[in-house]
């Protein structure tokens, strides 16, 4: 009984996603002013050829700072968890 309910919920979610997005058109982003600015001015401001690296490390450097912190925290968590068992050194 519970399983049928879950299947019905999944079908509702899927049909909802199909209905709202079936005329979704990819290939022409509506608002691309920010990205056009990055593509045009990235080379003269940051002197980098790879615009994705420019966005990752410079224009959105704080995102990457948080990302590195998340990675560090996750690794520390894994180390703590196994060290608690007394099997790590």
């Amino acid at each position: 009984m519970k399983k049928y309910l879950a299947v019905i919920v999944i079908l509702i979610i899927t049909s909802f996603m199909f209905i709202i997005g079936i005329d979704f058109v990819f290939g022409a982003p509506a608002n691309s002013d920010m990205d056009d600015y990055f593509i045009e001015h990235g080379q003269e401001q940051i002197a980098t050829n790879n615009i994705v690296t420019t966005v990752v490390f410079d224009y959105r450097g704080f995102d990457t700072l948080g990302e590195s912190t998340v990675l560090f925290t996750a690794v520390i968590g894994v180390a703590m968890m196994f060290r608690k068992l007394g099997e790590g050194d």
């Binding site: 080379q43 003269e44 940051i46 002197a47 980098t48 050829n49 690296t53 490390f57 410079d58």
Partner: peptide, 17 residues
């Protein structure tokens, strides 16, 4: 600095990246 537009690439660029 780099020349704007497509270029062959130069390793000694990009500041602290």
């Amino acid at each position: 600095s780099v020349i704007p537009g497509p270029n062959p690439g130069e390793l000694n660029t990009a500041g602290f990246l």
